[in-house]
Computed example of a mutant assay.
Amino acid sequence: MCVFNMNTALQQSKVYSVAGQYLYKSIKEAIANNDRLSVDMDGVTSLPSVFLNVSLGRIIDEEGKDKLKQYVGFVKITKQQALRLRDYLQRYN
């Protein structure tokens, strides 16, 4: 299992679309290696739409929601973050 530290990615890039690309690439690598990616949400204060669109949205477009759920899990996630992600996934077409 691979771990992606969301807070580190968001702090390092300062640009949400770039941070989203980091997550996207990590998810694609996990899928290619038939491995799960654990996304560590510790310290994350917000999940902007531009970040989600570039990362999770792009994976959904290319691979589908089921594959996203199969290969990606979230740890150290708050209730608010979980609700935001659930809402995003439900609304994404």
Results as ranks from 00 to 15, higher is better:
residue 85 L to C: 13
residue 10 L to T: 12
residue 47 L to R: 01
residue 1 M to E: 02
residue 82 A to R: 14
residue 48 P to F: 08
residue 13 S to V: 11
residue 6 M to E: 03
residue 30 A to W: 10
residue 68 L to T: 03
residue 17 S to L: 08
residue 13 S to D: 11
residue 68 L to S: 05
residue 31 I to Q: 11
residue 65 K to E: 06
residue 19 A to S: 14
residue 76 K to W: 01
residue 33 N to R: 15
residue 16 Y to Q: 08
residue 56 L to P: 14
residue 85 L to Y: 00
residue 65 K to V: 13
residue 56 L to T: 06
residue 83 L to D: 01
residue 53 N to S: 02
residue 65 K to R: 12
residue 31 I to M: 15
residue 61 D to F: 05
residue 73 G to D: 14
residue 22 Y to W: 07
residue 69 K to N: 08
residue 78 T to P: 13
residue 50 V to R: 09
residue 56 L to N: 08
residue 31 I to N: 11
residue 68 L to K: 04
residue 52 L to R: 09
residue 59 I to W: 00
residue 44 V to G: 05
residue 47 L to E: 01
residue 59 I to P: 01
residue 82 A to E: 15
residue 85 L to D: 00
residue 82 A to I: 05
residue 32 A to M: 09
residue 58 R to W: 00
residue 37 L to I: 03
residue 81 Q to C: 13
residue 45 T to D: 13
residue 32 A to T: 12
residue 48 P to I: 07
residue 19 A to H: 03
residue 88 Y to M: 14
residue 89 L to Q: 13
residue 54 V to E: 04
residue 26 S to W: 03
residue 39 V to C: 13
residue 29 E to T: 10
residue 45 T to A: 09
residue 49 S to H: 06
residue 67 K to R: 08
residue 36 R to A: 04
residue 13 S to Y: 14
residue 66 D to T: 06
residue 72 V to P: 08
residue 17 S to R: 13
residue 41 M to D: 02
residue 14 K to F: 08
residue 16 Y to E: 06
residue 64 G to D: 09
residue 63 E to Q: 15
residue 11 Q to F: 01
residue 38 S to P: 01
